[in-house]
C-alpha cells in the first residue's frame, strides 16, 4: 500500500518534470539531475525514490525498461507515458496554485 507522504506531491512533480526533459534516465541519474538543477538545494531522499518510481509506473505515468549501461551493468531507465504527461500538467498547475497561495499569505501577514 502506498504510504501518505508529505513530500510525495513535490517528489512526483520533480521526477515527472525531470523525465519530461530528459527521458530514459535511471534512478540514480534522476536523483543527480534533480540535485544539480536545484543547485544542491533539493535532495531527493534516496529511500523514497524507488517506491515512488514503482508507484508511478504502476499508475501508468511512467514506463520502464532495462538498459545496459557503459560499464555493462543493467539499469532500469524510465520515461513518461501519455498519462504521465497529463499528470505532469496537472501537478504543475497544482503546484503553481499552491505557491501563489503561499506567497499571498506571506505577503499579507
Amino acid at each position: 500500500m502506498p504510504k501518505a507522504d508529505s513530500l510525495q506531491g513535490s517528489l512526483d512533480l520533480l521526477v515527472l518534470k525531470t523525465l519530461s526533459r530528459r527521458p530514459g534516465l535511471h534512478g540514480y541519474a534522476i536523483m543527480t539531475a534533480i540535485r544539480e538543477r536545484s543547485d544542491d538545494v533539493l535532495r531527493v531522499e534516496e529511500g523514497s525514490l524507488y517506491p515512488a518510481l514503482h508507484r508511478m509506473e504502476e499508475a501508468g505515468w511512467l514506463r520502464a525498461e532495462w538498459v545496459t549501461k557503459d560499464n555493462g551493468r543493467r539499469a532500469r531507465a524510465y520515461a513518461l507515458t501519455k498519462a504521465g504527461e497529463k499528470q505532469l500538467e496537472a501537478e504543475e498547475s497544482r503546484w503553481e496554485a499552491v505557491t501563489v497561495a503561499v506567497q499571498r499569505v506571506l505577503r499579507t501577514v
Binding site: 534512478g27 540514480y28 534516496e46 529511500g47 524507488y50 551493468r73 543493467r74
Partner: peptide, 28 residues
Amino acid sequence: EIAEELESHIEEAVERGRDPLEARRALG
C-alpha cells in the same frame, strides 16, 4: 528485479566516489 535495480543504484553511487556503507545507509 527490484533488488537488481537497488543494487545498481548503490554501485553507481560507489562509482561516483561515495562510501559504499554511506550509500547503503542513505538508501535505507
